[in-house]
Lab assay of single mutants.
Amino acid sequence: MSIQHFRVALIPFFAAFCLPVFAHPETLVKVKDAEDQLGARVGYIELDLNSGKILESFRPEERFPMMSTFKVLLCGAVLSRVDAGQEQLGRRIHYSQNDLVEYSPVTEKHLTDGMTVRELCSAAITMSDNTAANLLLTTIGGPKELTAFLHNMGDHVTRLDRWEPELNEAIPNDERDTTMPAAMATTLRKLLTGELLTLASRQQLIDWMEADKVAGPLLRSALPAGWFIADKSGAGERGSRGIIAALGPDGKPSRIVVIYTTGSQATMDERNRQIAEIGASLIKHW
Rank of each mutant, 00 (worst) to 15 (best):
E61T: 11
K32V: 11
M153K: 11
L73D: 04
A183G: 10
M180V: 09
A132R: 00
K213F: 07
R238T: 10
S233A: 07
T116V: 14
L47G: 03
G43D: 02
F58T: 12
S51T: 09
K144Q: 08
I259G: 01
N152V: 11
Q265A: 08
R241H: 04
D177E: 03
P181A: 14
L28I: 09
T27H: 05
N152S: 12
W286N: 02
G279H: 03
A280E: 12
L135C: 06
D207A: 09
I259S: 01
E26N: 10
P217R: 12
I54T: 15
L111G: 11
T126R: 10
L120P: 01
A170V: 12
K71S: 00
G194M: 07
R271P: 09
S128Y: 01
S281T: 12
A200E: 11
T193N: 14
W208Q: 03
T112D: 11
R255Q: 04
L137S: 14
T147R: 07
V157G: 14
S233Q: 00
K53P: 03
R176K: 06
I256Q: 01
I140P: 01
E175H: 14
R202E: 13
C121N: 02
T198S: 08
P105S: 09
G263H: 12
T187C: 05
A222L: 11
L188E: 00
K109L: 11
L135Y: 04
D250R: 07
G251R: 11
N152W: 12
V214I: 06
G251H: 12
A124H: 02
L150R: 02
D231Q: 15
K190N: 15
T198V: 07
Q97M: 10
A123K: 02
W286K: 02
D48I: 04
E169H: 12
L137Y: 09
A148M: 07
A124T: 14
D231T: 04
A185F: 01
S104L: 01
A280P: 02
N272M: 03
G239A: 05
L247T: 09
L196E: 06
D83H: 05
L28V: 12
R271T: 10
E164L: 01
Q265D: 13
L49C: 06
L160I: 12
Q86P: 14
N134Y: 02
R162A: 10
L28C: 12
S264I: 05
L89V: 15
M115N: 03
R92C: 13
D269W: 10
H94I: 06
G251Q: 07
M127T: 13
D174M: 04
K109H: 10
Y260M: 13
A170T: 07
E175S: 13
D161V: 09
D155Y: 01
F228L: 06
L137P: 01
W227S: 00
A183M: 14
K190R: 15
A276Q: 10
H285W: 09
K144M: 06
C121M: 08
R273N: 11
D231Y: 04
A266M: 13
P181R: 01
K213D: 03
D212I: 03
G251W: 09
